[in-house]
Write a protein that binds this DNA or RNA. Sequence first.
DNA 1: AATGAATGAGGGTTCATTCAT
DNA 2: GATGAATGAACCCTCATTCAT
Lengths: 192, 192, 192, 192
Amino acid sequence: MDNTKEKIIAVATRIFSRFGFYKTSMDEIARTAHKAKGSLYYHFTSKEALFTEVVDRELKNLKAELALVVTDPALNPKEKIRQYLITRMSVLNKAANYHEVLSADFMEHFEFVDQLRADLDSWEKEQLKSIIKQGIESGVFVDQTDKMDILLDVFIMVLKGLEIPFFLQGKYDALSPHFDDLIQILIKGISI
Amino acid sequence: MDNTKEKIIAVATRIFSRFGFYKTSMDEIARTAHKAKGSLYYHFTSKEALFTEVVDRELKNLKAELALVVTDPALNPKEKIRQYLITRMSVLNKAANYHEVLSADFMEHFEFVDQLRADLDSWEKEQLKSIIKQGIESGVFVDQTDKMDILLDVFIMVLKGLEIPFFLQGKYDALSPHFDDLIQILIKGISI
Amino acid sequence: MDNTKEKIIAVATRIFSRFGFYKTSMDEIARTAHKAKGSLYYHFTSKEALFTEVVDRELKNLKAELALVVTDPALNPKEKIRQYLITRMSVLNKAANYHEVLSADFMEHFEFVDQLRADLDSWEKEQLKSIIKQGIESGVFVDQTDKMDILLDVFIMVLKGLEIPFFLQGKYDALSPHFDDLIQILIKGISI
Amino acid sequence: MDNTKEKIIAVATRIFSRFGFYKTSMDEIARTAHKAKGSLYYHFTSKEALFTEVVDRELKNLKAELALVVTDPALNPKEKIRQYLITRMSVLNKAANYHEVLSADFMEHFEFVDQLRADLDSWEKEQLKSIIKQGIESGVFVDQTDKMDILLDVFIMVLKGLEIPFFLQGKYDALSPHFDDLIQILIKGISI
DNA sequence: AATGAATGAGGGTTCATTCAT
DNA sequence: GATGAATGAACCCTCATTCAT
């Protein structure tokens, strides 16, 4: 059955998110999932591989939800950007394992992390580019074709930057009320 | 001698910063410092205590350098804010262990991390508040006494947010050229 | 099909000979043979049983090749002994798994090894005895009927002894040039 | 104390010799020695390192006993060779762990084995060379300076070869009676 | 103040074997 | 006949911590 593998992933997702990569042992995952430790290794090459799978799924989910916003015909460009950012923050707020991956330690020692982040980055850049192009075509945003790439880089940089105070420091609830102000500023920056 | 303790801290700072908290063993620190493992435990209660000391020193250094800027009589408020941000990023760029502490795992499991960050946050808030007050008094910034706290919170939030793309992702060199633009935007936001 | 079993044996022969009994896993054999691990256990009771089969075949092959020499009517007794030794060394040089079995560990812990070696020993003794008898009958070798058994024991002992420097230490190529000298000495010892 | 380390080596020597390298676990050694498993790793980097130490001591002991023979002024060259071989076989008969090292598997996978054997080989060559030189000087052995190295190589090859039937196959007791005959043959070969 | 020997609880991983299908 | 998912015992090793000296 695919049941066992899914059960392992489900349990791993929960435990990794609570205790982090290092503080979570394969033994505890196996015990909690009521599976043999050997079974974890039948389905995943290593602890690292299991963790990668967990994070990968979180990011796939993020992409899926963002894609819904990007392709929503009911939203105009400005609303789309606003909704994109809100959705992003909201989904990431639940993707606890992805946060783990922000650690400097992971950056230096696990290549797969870089891979995952790089993939997500380029994907997001494409999405935002398409939204802005729509805005330019409909005359809402100024045409800055030459500066587009730099603009997008800075934009994404700020987005990712917000992840720390929002999630890692547990200030999502405290800061989310000010979120709309932030979005207004960012959009204004683009609209000028 | 105080020599032994200082030697241990110096070595620990270097090794922690290279391999992170979990991947660094007390044994490696002792070996590199040419001290006995028992000596580490004579001077520090635990691995955690040693790491705390290391991070604490990095932040003290950060504060010291920032204080120089804040009290520099040669700078006007706008220049001061600009210099504050540049110094902040530059110093943090070398404070590798502080970055380690950004990990979600640390947040949840080591109380001392929260403590350190909270201290730094309120300290920075005070510094920025004093700069802005100078600006208001000299008529450079608009008086927003009622919104001051919110403004400062958002300001610091963005600052801390930038740490991830700047340091963790190793994009300091790539992004620092755009740094001035960012600062201009932030200052403009306050100046209106 | 008999195909599966043969495939397993063929692959096992190769892998066992490269990595030895302990360092070879059933999993690797299954993977390399493109068979399920369960299939190995359908055809062989255990890892040990599979290994026994592999070694057994190598020894059967050795016997077959040696039998050709012993029954070759074109060779006189002296030539026969010479050819016997050369063939023995040459075939064993390729019987890598048999070598594994020389280990002290195998001797003490796997009874089947003793069985295989004992069978081979008595078989070889018979062959050599028949050659020598031919030599005595044709007047080439001295009649030492009373000492025949001891002579054969020592003879085989030396033969087996040569296996270590020749095969285990990888000196086959280096030592085989001196092989003819050795044979001359042995034959001379018998011929007196 | 040096006591712990010696205790570990003593126990390891015994257990390795009974069950071989692979079938002996660090856990069992620790348990039997009434020491913590961690203590084994405090004194020895790895299981392999511990085993190396054990074998190394066996070989040192062998060398020491052989050296006594080589330097014994009471023996003439012929007697010396005879005594050398007898001592060699007798000491090796008790050096159970050295035998383990004869395995083909060890040859291919543990470099340290090659190192140990190579050291021993060159040492033994020197000893035998000195004995033979004495014999030549006293006119007992024929001067074959040009063939000396080849002669020694073959000589050592046969010596090592005898190790298998003598020890691995547990035939020391059965074959040692014929040992004197063998020695006579070898000496005669040199003496001609 | 400083040491280094000793510990023992775990950690990740391997692997021969079983068994329902 | 053949499979592959599942198991669990064992294995080697790491490491923060303790403590007698």
